[in-house]
Design a protein around this nucleic acid. Structure first.
Length: 1019
RNA sequence: GGGCCAUUAGCUCAGUUGGUUAGAGCACAGUCCUGAUAAGACUGGGGUCUGUGGUUCGAAUCCACAAUGGCCCA
């Protein structure tokens, strides 16, 4: 006996019960352990931050990770998976700063790094309960108890090891980088933070500056010589434009577009040079053009600096290599030169761009490429340094002073204001400055080709990521600036001698301990700041004191080290990693990770091991809200996954995630659609299941593999063929990392099973004789359900478990304890019968058209008709249909089927036809008295069935039926007595007024009044 | 400013190498069926396949440009 199943079901309540079962029986651990020794399927869990509540997109990621991993496990692989947490980084620090009301690093230092980091450490697991709860509730099976944390000493040590490897390979160097810098917070901002603070309509100066030139040039092209001769008598200037006058003292080059045309114009007794295309915009559209020359010809032309840095106590340095800045000697006659770059706009300005390598990223790159001078005139607080008239002023206050100074010296063409978009610090509203700072780099460009080559081996889902987003990103690879001037992060393991500047990289705790003169570890050991700042040892070169460089690591380096750092490699688990875990078979995260985790994994793996870190990667796109807007906490449109789970259940949410759209596509999240999944898919499955259990219990059906049926009926052969075809395809889709395709395929099968197989088989289950046909039906439906349940287990683990426990475990104690310990079904292809499948679908279409024809004729299906006329496209179709005629006859409630050669015939007869393509189906309209009588009998049966239910009888209860009516009614009841008795489980049909206590109703059917009474036998 | 993705019915999505009249589910309306009943079937309305060009005998599909939305990077 199966446990009785109600057709009413609360999925969330059922899921809670199943969760409890898994927990009690430790099913997850058993599922992993039972595959020990089998081929390993390696999955890397990308560590999330647990300092905020998990959102719906986290659910998406987790269920996509889960479905593949569960599938692989059921396919027989050994798939241990460890959870992980990202714990370092600026977001954590910002949260603490917010709590403490800080807005600058100075405040943190004053407060104390020790206490600050203690708070950071505490806060990273603030929401870990919520994370763990949701993780378990949606049945993402991952080992939460042994989760790796990027802040663990063992983890940090592995990261140090990785860095040391790169150090030894000479991949690490110090160089400059331009970053968006908040002068008040004293720190760089990540691009994400910058994006938070853009303000439209910011008013800024718009100034046109004149740079004095004598048109001398090292190359001295003929055209240039000509122009020089022409303008020799008057002062000549290169006209440039800027919105940041404070950067002008840092100017070391002017940039032109090589292919653009430039003009020499006369204006108020002077000559001005700028782009022809911008004459009108500059306001000199009518001034006479003295000469023209191309940008190319201007390259190399010398001009006088607006402010010679040496006159104002500022150091002038020059890019000797891309990373080395070398101090230059004072030069009273300092000149700078015109360069050509590809970032010169012909849309605004003058076509000559003022370039200050210290204050702009493109300027900086130009500085590196063209070995420009590098002049820093602003400190990290945004104040002007040196001895300028405006020294000590904040840059924005210096703007008008710089402009005024230039005007006084006749170097200003004009000054206006402009409204544009400019980034501000999202915390303190200070304008951000693009500012060059010295920082540490990993020479990723050295392995760019290897990374590109490795990328070719990765299977990306969707595919376009490979050559698109990720490929492009690799193509444009620049060295990785991995240091952060912050507090809560993996400390850089670089120690520098105070005396001789020698720098060493330390690759392990033990190595550090062994250093001569080592001092500074505290117990318990904590490899974070400020403790590591106290660690020092003796310089191997000069005997000086080695102090740690103050920076911490970009937290992307942390997470990218996860494959080995989670194992404390190479200090532990060396063999395990080298032999089995060195490459993930599968990872899955949001597509925003292409430049985040995907990149850091790939880059670190290439640098250290010269191989890609992962083989298959599903990139998930975002959920938008129901209106297509981005979800965000501030907008208040974020969906709370727990609410959805509590209302619809985790299976519904999971199934929705898999099937509603391909994961790589942006999609809208509509809670209504999750409800639809429940109704359309899960509830349908539940109905089939409860139908099966209800009748199986009535008939005391027990699955028994030895009780097979010899000649399996066609309908059963058909659904078994469909089942195996589906199993085959689902396996293929899953191997291809396509749970969407697989899930949708399962839905299709469910539709076939429910709306054709069960619908067509219902009578077979309630016929009272226990014949072989009935056994075959039970065997077949049982097999379908059990297979389906296993097939669905990775997708909808709860309902699969619930059904499995009742269908399999309750009757077979030797079966695996859980569906998740079972093997994944594989197809028996010998059972697949494509012809039968084709024919059945034809029968379905014929039935559909037949019903449409009946509908048009206005004749109920309950009324039997003499015949259905069918026209098919081919002889093959006709033969197939003839074979399946019984199903069609029953479905359409007609006596015979007749095939016609010509469609026209259908219209010549007393019938109504419906056509779809080459297929036409017609039903005869004529109803003989015999057919009418049979129709009435069926009508009466229908009423009796309804009355049985209204009276509250059980499906298997036997009854006595009383009836009272006219002659015709009596005749019909006598003529169809056996039929009525069988259908309604009536032992007796008694003519006359219903007895006392019977459920009684009076109906008017086909013009005849009839009174019916039903009474349960024995009551 | 650059890159990538998307745009098909009111909504969510299919639509294979270009090839009959572009489909499904939901929603809406009507009808039916019902011993799966908080299901099911049929019918109907609803489409400029985002737009404009191009390639082709033929384009939702291929190409170019544009618009809108989204993501990533400047």
């Amino acid at each position: 006996m199966f446990n009785p199943v109600s057709s009413r079901i609360s999925f969330p309540a059922m899921e809670e019960k199943v969760l409890d079962f898994w927990k009690r029986q430790d099913i997850f651990n058993k599922s992993v352990k039972q595959r020990e020794g089998k081929k390993r399927f390696v999955f890397y869990e990308g560590p999330p931050f647990a300092n905020g509540n998990p959102g719906i997109h986290h659910v998406l990621a987790r269920v996509y990770k889960d479905v593949i991993v569960r599938y692989q496990e059921m396919k027989g692989h050994y798939v241990p998976r460890i959870a992980g947490w990202d714990t370092h980084g600026l977001p954590v620090e910002l949260e603490i700063e917010r709590q403490l009301g800080f807005s600058s690093k100075a405040e943190i230092e004053k407060y104390g790094v020790e206490e600050f980091n203690r708070r950071c450490r505490e806060s990273v697991f603030k929401y870990v309960k919520e994370w763990n709860y949701l993780t378990e509730r949606i049945a993402y099976w991952v080992d939460l108890d042994h989760a790796y944390k990027t802040m663990d000493n063992t983890y940090v040590e592995s990261v140090w090891w990785a860095l040391k490897q790169m150090w030894d390979k000479d991949y690490i160097y110090q160089g400059y980088k331009v970053t968006p810098h908040c002068p008040r917070c004293g720190t760089s901002l990540s691009s994400h933070e910058v994006a938070l603070g853009y303000q439209d309509d910011t008013e800024d100066p718009s100034v046109y500056i004149k740079f004095r030139t004598h048109l001398k040039s090292a190359q001295g092209s003929p055209a240039l010589e000509r122009v020089r001769a022409l303008v020799a008598d008057k002062k000549t200037y290169l006209l440039a434009w800027t919105t940041t006058p404070w950067t002008l003292p840092g100017n070391t080059a002017l940039a032109v577009a090589a292919d653009a045309e430039y003009v020499v114009l006369e204006h108020e007794g002077e000559y001005l040079i700028f782009a022809d295309a911008l004459r009108g915009q500059v306001g000199l559209g009518t001034n006479p053009v003295v000469e023209r020359l191309s940008g190319k010809e201007l390259v190399g032309v010398e001009y006088e600096p607006l402010f010679n840095p040496h006159d104002f106590g500022i150091e002038r340095r020059r890019f000797e290599t891309r990373s080395d800045l070398v101090v230059q000697k004072p030069d009273k006659d300092l000149v700078y030169r015109v360069i050509a770059t590809d970032f010169v706009s012909m849309e605004d300005g003058t076509g000559i761009v003022h370039s200050a390598p210290a204050y702009g990223e493109v300027d900086f790159q130009a500085g590196q490429e063209k070995s420009l001078d590098f002049v820093h005139t602003v400190d990290l607080q945004g104040n002007i340094t040196g001895t300028y008239p405006f020294t000590g002023k904040f840059v924005k206050e210096a703007d008008p002073l710089v402009t005024a100074d230039l005007k006084k010296r006749g170097l200003l063409f004009k000054a206006e204001t402009i409204r544009h978009t400019y980034p501000f610090c999202w915390r303190c509203d200070a304008p951000l400055l693009y500012y060059a700072k010295q920082t540490w780099y990993i020479r990723t460009t050295a392995v760019k080709d290897r990374m590109l080559k490795g990328n070719q081996k990765i299977n990306w889902y969707p595919e376009h990521i490979k050559t698109g987003r990720f490929g492009n990103w690799l193509e444009n690879n620049v060295d990785w600036g991995f240091a952060r001037e912050r507090y809560w992060g993996t400390p850089l393991p670089f120690w520098r001698c105070e005396k001789c500047n020698a720098t060493e990289c330390v690759g392990s705790v033990e190595e550090l301990r062994q250093k001569p003169g080592f001092t500074g570890f505290r117990e318990p050991l904590d490899l974070h700041r400020p403790y590591m700042d106290d660690v020092s040892f003796t310089c191997g070169k000069c005997g000086g004191k080695m102090k740690r460089t103050p920076e911490v690591m970009d937290c992307w380096f942390d997470s990218g080290s996860m494959p080995f750092a989670q194992l404390h490699y190479p200090f532990e688990n060396k063999e395990l990693f080298d032999k089995e875990m060195k490459q993930a078979d599968y990872i899955c995260e949001g597509v925003d990770q292409t430049r985040g985790w995907f990149y850091s994994l790939h880059a670190i793996s290439t640098l250290l091991f010269d191989r890609p870190s992962f083989k298959n990667c599903i990139c998930l796109e975002l959920f938008l809200d129901a209106d297509g807007k981005k979800m965000s906490k501030s907008r208040g449109n974020a969906v709370d996954p727990i609410q959805i789970v509590n209302r619809n259940g985790a299976d519904a949410l999971r199934w929705y995630c898999y099937t509603s759209a391909p994961p790589g596509m942006v999609r809208r999240f509509d809670t209504q659609l999750v409800t639809d999944v429940t109704r359309q898919f899960l509830l349908t499955l539940w109905n089939v299941y409860s139908f099966f259990v209800t009748y199986a219990n009535i008939d005391k059906f027990t699955p028994d593999p030895s009780k097979t049926v010899k000649d399996v009926p066609e309908l059963d052969r058909w659904i078994l063929s469909e089942l195996n075809q589906m199993v085959k395809e689902v396996n293929t889709e899953m191997e291809n990392y396509d749970p969407t395709g697989a899930g949708r395929r399962i839905e299709e099968f469910m539709d076939d099973l429910s709306n054709w197989y069960v619908r067509r088989s219902r009578r077979r289950f309630w016929k009272s004789e226990n014949d072989t046909d009935k056994l075959s039906a039970y065997n077949t439906l049982y097999h379908c359900l059990v297979t389906l349940v296993k097939l669905m287990a990775p997708f909808a683990p709860f309902i699969a478990e619930e059904l499995y426990q009742n269908l399999v475990r309750s009757v077979d104690g030797s079966a695996p304890e859980s569906v998740h310990l079972a093997d994944y079904p594989s197809a028996d292809e010998s059972i697949i019968d494509p012809d039968l499948s084709l024919d059945t679908h034809l029968a379905m279409r014929v039935s559909s058209l037949g019903r449409a024809a009946r509908s048009q004729a206005g004749i109920k299906v309950r009324q039997p008709l003499a015949k259905v006329l069918v026209h098919v496209a081919s002889k093959r179709d006709r033969e197939g249909l003839e074979r399946l005629a019984p199903q069609v006859l029953e479905e359409l409630n007609v006596k015979t089927v007749e095939f016609v050669e010509a469609v026209e015939e259908l219209n010549n007869r007393e019938c109504i036809a419906c056509t779809e393509g080459e297929l036409s189906v017609a039903v005869s309209k004529g109803i003989s008295p015999e057919l009418a009588a049979e129709g009435l009998a069926r009508e009466i049966v229908h009423r009796l069935q309804t009355m049985r239910r209204n009276a509250g009888f059980e499906i298997a209860d036997y009854i006595t039926t009383h009836y009272q009516g006219d002659d015709h009614v009596r005749q019909v009841m006598r003529g169809f007595a056996d039929y009525v008795k069988q259908e309604t489980l009536s032992r007796q049909l008694v003519e006359g007024a219903p007895v006392e206590g019977a459920h009684t109703e009076t109906h008017k059917l086909a013009g005849h009044s009839i009174t019916l009474g039903v009474k349960k036998i024995g009551s």
